[in-house]
Simulated assay, not measured.
Amino acid sequence: MAETASSSERPLALVTGASSGIGEAFARALAARGHDLALVARRADRLEALAAELSSRHGVTAFALPADLSVLGANQTVLDAVAARGRRVDVLVNNAGFSIAQSFDDVPWSRQQDFLMTLVVTACGLAHGVIPDMVARGGGRIINVASLAGFAPGVAGHTLYPGAKSLMIKLTQALDAEYRAAGLKITAVCPGFTQTEFASANGTDAVMAEAPRRLFQTPDQVVAAALKANDHGKVVVVPGWHNAVAATLLHYLPQGLVRWGLMKGSAKYHLAAD
């Protein structure tokens, strides 16, 4: 029987939003590749159960780091917890996120701030925290989960979402330009409709259920595309041919026409205030 590598020899992947959906799929795929795992999300019970399952199934070390990533300084708290275990991050997956389906002023600013902290500030902070050690070691990987919405203009509802996801795409491109020569592989994955709890969390699940199933991908499909792209040093990947076509149209069609079409098509995803 082949010996299992010790935890000090195995690469460590830090996955945010790991308690469900795309984050959980990343954790499962990376464990199957022989990575140890630092699993980050708010739901400690789910993280603990997933960590125990993956440790048992794949012979890796997986541990839960429950954290609220909307809190200022959460990125450093998470990285300090990893360092306290004597570990360093070899793979960072910035996946944690949510959306707010109402109009901008229909929810408290504190909620909008939580959105920005989780999707932008903490994600950027985690990347900023792991890159120096990756550069010193001559290698490392970062995967930022962006969205097809990152190529789209803003419309009513989900006010900050396209901008936040666009920032993650641009950040990924900039980091690749800065650190590719140092051996880092940095990729933004831009999924479209995906079968997760995302819509249930923002209250649009009933509307999303009406969308054609052929437009949806599974989290496993998104993750497989992201990991393959990252393996090959691809900077931006749009999983699914139909999403790739949509991204191309968003880029090349006149923006006025794109915005008009999106305004009409997205109106049903814009929820009234509670």
Rank of each mutant, 00 (worst) to 15 (best):
A246H: 13
G233Y: 11
E197S: 01
A246F: 09
A211H: 02
A225Q: 06
L215R: 03
A226M: 07
H251S: 15
R213C: 01
L249I: 10
L250P: 12
A209Q: 15
K264Q: 09
A229I: 05
H242D: 07
Q221S: 13
R214Q: 08
E210G: 01
S200P: 02
M263A: 13
P239F: 11
R259P: 05
D220K: 11
V235Y: 10
G233D: 12
R214D: 00
A225S: 07
Y252H: 10
F198S: 04
Q195V: 13
W241F: 14
V245T: 09
E210L: 02
V245A: 04
A206T: 14
L253H: 11
V238M: 00
V222T: 08
M263P: 05
N243Y: 12
A209K: 15
T196C: 09
R213M: 05
H251V: 04
A201T: 01
M263I: 05
S200D: 11
P239Q: 07
T196F: 03
D220M: 12
P239E: 10
A244D: 02
R214H: 07
W241Q: 03
A209G: 04
A224E: 13
K264G: 09
A199R: 02
R214L: 01
D205Q: 13
P212D: 00
P219F: 10
E210S: 07
H251C: 11
W260N: 15
R259A: 05
R213P: 01
E210K: 01
G256R: 15
A226Y: 05
P212C: 00
P254D: 12
K234L: 07
W241A: 13
F198H: 04
G203W: 06
L253A: 14
V207I: 14
T196K: 03
H232W: 06
A244N: 04
W260K: 11
R214C: 03
K228Q: 14
Q255C: 08
V258Q: 09
W241E: 02
L215C: 08
P254K: 15
H242Y: 03
R259L: 04
E197T: 01
A247W: 02
H251I: 04
V237N: 08
Q217E: 12
M208A: 12
V258G: 11
Q217I: 12
N230R: 02
G233K: 03
L249R: 07
D220L: 15
M208H: 11
P219E: 14
T204V: 12
R259W: 10
M208Y: 08
S200M: 06
G240C: 13
A211G: 02
T248H: 15
V223D: 12
A201Y: 01
F198T: 05
G261K: 03
V235E: 10
R213N: 08
K234P: 03
L215V: 01
T204M: 09
